[in-house]
Amino acid sequence: MMTDEIILEVKNLSTYFHTEQGQVKAVDHVSFVLRDGETLGIVGESGSGKTVLNLSILRLLPSSVTVHAGGQILYRGRDMMSLNESELQQIRGNKISMIFQDPMTSLNPYMKVCDQLMETLILHQGLDKKTAKEKSVELIKHVGIPDPKIRAEQYPHQFSGGMRQRVMIAMALSCKPDILIADEPTTALDVTIQAQILDLIRELTREMKTSVILITHDLGVVAGICDTVAVMYAGRIVEYGTVDEIFSNPRHPYTQGLIQSVPRLDGSSDHELFSIPGSPPSLVNLPAGCHFQPRCSKAMPICAEKYPPEIVNGNHRCCCWLWHRGEDRG
């Protein structure tokens, strides 16, 4: 399943926006690797830069609002940053594709479902209309929608939310991409449908050996289907490691807080649910030093002065002064 071949490498990626209030560091020096067949979960609160990170990977952010985009995104060794628009179009949808959060608005209301599926196939696989149509009916069937022939001729408004998300998955996977970016694919769905959709994503990506970047704020989902996890806070990855490592041995106080705030079935019912005090900082006005330090129960004087350098421990990386030895803290 998961091999050692690195398929996507993000090095020091930064994306800043310019706004009326000042510069917003939506993504700040983010680095991670994605291996062939790996499922990477990116977790973090709303506004921690998860979505911007993924839009940056696909280079989908309009250049007019981005004031600074630095770093490297190496897809199979090619730097996405240096590609021009038409080269990017060759990759988008074909090699790297994406599923959005809200299936209700991510399909074009004026196009038949099969036409939307056919668009990808015609664009990237050079199929003629007839074969593309047959293929799209097959895809609809493949994602578990009954009566695919009739369904293909329908319009998005005749589909339920879960079905639309299935169509989005079919669309995203129609060209057997190397990487699937799923941006909170289940947030807008019914709880009963969420599990089905996640199963579908897992099954299909396994079948096609597609690597997945799953953005979510649901730790349960992460524990269920991810191999590795990156925890984001205020635009930076604060902790990165395998699922087992992160859940059994969380090192960053933020990750610890997140895990503690998940309600547990086996916990006592009169126990009050843990929550991290305070709220995420505004990305315009980040606190000095470690961005989490104002909310951190273990904050030290150094935390407010300098951003902690990354401490690497095998596959487990963490940015926290707690794990640095005294002399490093200087």
Binding site: L58, L60, E85, S86, L88, Q89, Q90, I91, R92, G93, N94, S97, M98, F100, Q101, D102, T105, S106, L107, N108, P109, M111, E119, T120, L123, H124, M168, M171, A172
Partner: peptide, 21 residues
């Protein structure tokens, strides 16, 4: 809107997005 973004994600060119979507 997300479906325009989705069209860009599947690699559609700007004229195509304008005309078809």
């Amino acid at each position: 809107s997300e479906f325009i973004q989705a069209a860009r994600v599947i690699g559609a060119s700007t004229p195509r997005i304008l005309v078809r979507h």
